[in-house]
């Protein structure tokens, strides 16, 4: 399976990449929403999962989600916001725009794995 990790912080991308790699995903990185869309346009196979920061330059995570949801080719992608935006209203906005799950930073590795398990993206018993 493939996962796209979209965050303008390289450190955060590293953390997320480490977690999804443990779960047997091949990870692709993007530094903002636009870069992620450009990469997706060139990918023959759509990744199963995208982990998406909210506040990024060029195109933010919410705009990225809106774009993905409007594109039938990307319909199967599971979208998880991973952000410091933690107001109730922001979570509601992201879910309404089409995000499937929402992880608030800071998160522990265990918490991220549990969220992915909720989405059926973790083989059962694989939370180390």
């Amino acid at each position: 399976m493939r996962a796209m990790v979209i965050d303008d912080s390289r450190a955060m991308r590293m953390i997320l990449k480490r977690i999804v790699t443990k779960l047997n995903f091949d990870a692709v990185e993007a530094g903002d929403g636009q870069e992620a869309l450009d990469l997706l346009a060139d990918m023959p196979e759509v990744p199963e999962l995208a982990l998406i920061d909210w506040n990024m330059p060029n195109m933010n995570g919410l705009e990225f989600v809106t774009n993905v949801r409007a594109d039938p080719r990307l319909r199967e992608m599971t979208l998880v916001m991973v952000t410091t935006e933690s107001e109730q209203s922001q979570i509601v906005r992201a879910l309404a725009a089409g995000a499937h799950e929402y992880v608030i930073k800071p998160f522990t590795e265990g918490a991220m794995i549990e969220k992915l398990a909720l989405l059926g993206l973790v083989p059962t018993g694989a939370n180390s």
Binding site: Y102, I104, F107, T108, A111, L118
Partner: peptide, 11 residues
């Protein structure tokens, strides 16, 4: 915040 991240669906 850390506690509500754990296994609780965002919805």
């Amino acid at each position: 915040q850390v506690e509500v991240n754990r296994g609780l669906p965002a919805s």
